[in-house]
Amino acid sequence: MAEHDTTHFGFQTVNKDEKVKKVADVFHSVAARYDVMNDLMSFGIHRVWKLFTIELSGVRTGAKVLDIAGGTGDLAAKFAQRVGPEGEVVLADINESMLRVGRDKLIDRGLGHRVKYVQANAECLPFPDNHFDVITIAFGLRNVTDKDAALASMQRILKPGGKLLVLEFSKPQSTLLSKAYDLYSFRALPLMGKLVANDADSYQYLAESIRMHPDQETLKSMMLTAGFATVKYHNMTGGIVALHVGNKA
């Protein structure tokens, strides 16, 4: 395989087309237990991270919002309540199983009719230029094969003055925390995956994909290169998670 045809799937080097299929298989496998595992893995703290993202988005009544890799709809549900009937919320995910789980969850909460559902690849988003006020992607960017293409695609469809929020696992800020986090990630996560979701391999990939994801400063630089005028990031839980916020000029 030529170097430009390959990418990372966790710690493995694979063909880019192969990564797309492998990531799809992971999320087809974990979709049904995704919410339960999120609560277990993060001890429920993922809800605080997502709430902080919602608050920093500044979404108001009438806004147009796109949640990419929106999975089971946590952010989309909050946005639907905030934008009101005159706003627009689109839940997009490349994975059909995750999109179905998210749609069913939102219907159960009485919000299904307030959200549009689109199966889409973040690298080539099927929306017009300058359309959305806010775009979010939570714990999804690390699974994208061509992150630069995805960031450029998001920048294109944001309105001038619009905001992109990238919530993602990142690099812990202390050596001690980093060592403890490694131990937890590579020992506990696969075991939880095996016991709860009957799938240790997918959660081994999760731990590996987090380590291969760009750190805080690298992702900030990538967002600036993609055309965002300003980019700031906020470390949470000691840098285990970071929220990057980029504004389009």
Rank of each mutant, 00 (worst) to 15 (best):
R114E: 08
K171S: 13
G87M: 13
L224T: 15
V30I: 01
G110L: 06
F186K: 08
D201F: 01
L167W: 07
L99F: 14
N143D: 12
V26T: 04
Q81I: 10
I94G: 06
L206Q: 10
W49I: 10
V144P: 02
I157G: 11
I157K: 11
Y181A: 01
C124N: 11
T53Q: 06
S57P: 01
S221Q: 15
N130V: 12
L195E: 04
G246E: 12
G227W: 09
N38S: 04
A152M: 13
A120V: 14
V144N: 05
A229F: 06
P160V: 12
K50P: 03
K147F: 05
G227C: 03
G87R: 12
A242R: 02
I94M: 09
A80W: 13
G87S: 11
A32E: 11
L125I: 05
V23P: 00
T53C: 11
L151Y: 05
Y117C: 09
M236V: 15
T53F: 07
D17M: 13
K50W: 02
V90S: 06
P160S: 13
Y205H: 01
H213R: 09
A69V: 07
R109A: 15
D25T: 04
K220L: 13
P126A: 12
Y184S: 07
M236N: 03
F228W: 07
